[in-house]
């Protein structure tokens, strides 16, 4: 054996070891940042639950779910989440009434009717609409939409759920449109060609062939829209008033779960106080609601998933 050769080999092995060690180290570092998503999820659940537990020791969970009065700031305190849920559901409902037809029409138009050129112009505009901050939409609801509605319906109060609901609808149209359009464009061309070959018009193809084929994606778009609307904060905090009110009447003012959290956070937060704990209980309710909506969406998508 040549001793010089041995030296080279051992040097190489040492280098190899170094190199492998460095690779492992980097992989470990990357793994740590890959785990951040799990860590955040766990932290959310932990913080909400651990702060909500003392709240539920103070307020029984049955009162929380069945009491129709939410007056944490009054001398006689009531903690019934129902008024906040009714506000959340009403604004979400109005938003969906606006956004579902508009979003679906936009999606069908963009995917089946619009030329390539038109689509290239419209899609960026929709994306810009997604980028508009919600606080600006809130201003829009309070200063522009509600006064306009008051001209049609003079009894409307300055703070109501109708105006912010409509604005929220406009806000979520692009979400529905882009997700639904993606799923429609994913329907294979052969299905369109088949329909056209049978003499179907564009409209017939869109409604009877493409929409049923893409229904799981369209439902996913609606689900996304619902969870956006349920979690939307600033529009309702600005324009719906922040007074909890157990009603489904859109012309009344009301608070949603999110706007309640904002109104408490704006005041003096006493760490560990019941007011402080109540926003975590409200937040936990919100998280469970969005979770249920997402699970429902997942189930619906699975049921109607089309295989081509």
């Amino acid at each position: 054996m040549n001793p010089e050769n041995d030296l080279i080999i051992s040097q190489r092995l040492a280098k190899n070891f170094q190199r492998n060690f460095r690779e492992r180290l980097i992989e470990f570092g990357l793994l740590c940042s890959g785990l951040i998503a799990i860590f955040i999820t766990l932290a959310i659940v932990y913080v909400l639950v651990s702060e909500a537990i003392p709240f539920f020791q103070h307020v029984s969970i049955i009162d929380f779910l069945t009491d129709t009065v939410w007056t944490p700031n009054y001398s006689i305190k009531h903690y019934g989440i129902l008024p906040l849920i009714s506000g959340t559901l009403t604004t979400t409902g109005i938003a969906l009434i606006v956004a579902v037809p508009l979003g679906t029409i936009t999606a069908i138009y963009l995917s089946e009717f619009a030329s390539h050129k038109v689509r290239e112009i419209i899609k960026p505009i929709l994306e810009l609409l997604v980028g508009v901050p919600t606080v600006v939409f809130g201003y829009f609801a309070l200063m522009l939409v509600t006064p306009m509605l008051q001209k049609i319906y003079p009894d409307l109060t300055t703070f109501n759920m109708l105006g912010p609901g409509i604005v929220m609808g406009i806000m979520i149209v692009p979400y529905i449109a882009s997700v639904a359009e993606d799923s429609m464009r994913a329907v294979p061309m052969s299905m369109r060609e088949g329909a056209y070959a049978m003499g179907a018009t564009r409209f017939q193809t869109a409604i009877r062939v493409i929409t049923p084929a893409a229904i799981s994606g369209i439902v996913a778009a609606y689900i996304l829209a619902i969870s956006r609307a349920v979690g939307e904060t600033m529009i309702v905090a600005i324009a719906a008033g922040q007074q909890p009110n157990f009603t489904f009447n859109p012309v009344e003012s009301a608070a949603t779960i999110t706007s309640y959290i904002v109104s408490v956070a704006l005041g003096d937060l006493e760490h560990g106080g019941i007011g402080y704990q109540s926003i975590f209980a409200a937040g936990l309710t919100l998280l469970i609601m969005t979770l249920l909506i997402n699970i429902l969406g997942h189930a619906v998508r699975k049921k109607y998933a089309e295989r081509y």
Binding site: L48, V262, L287
Partner: peptide
């Protein structure tokens, strides 16, 4: 898969929930 589900779920969590997380975790 677990990490993936977590990432897509996080994108759907309402932003105010992150505020509550930060209030409980970072602030206090």
């Amino acid at each position: 898969d677990l990490i993936e589900i977590n990432v897509s779920n996080l994108a759907g969590v309402p932003s105010i929930i992150y505020g509550l997380l930060a209030l409980g975790l970072f602030v206090y």
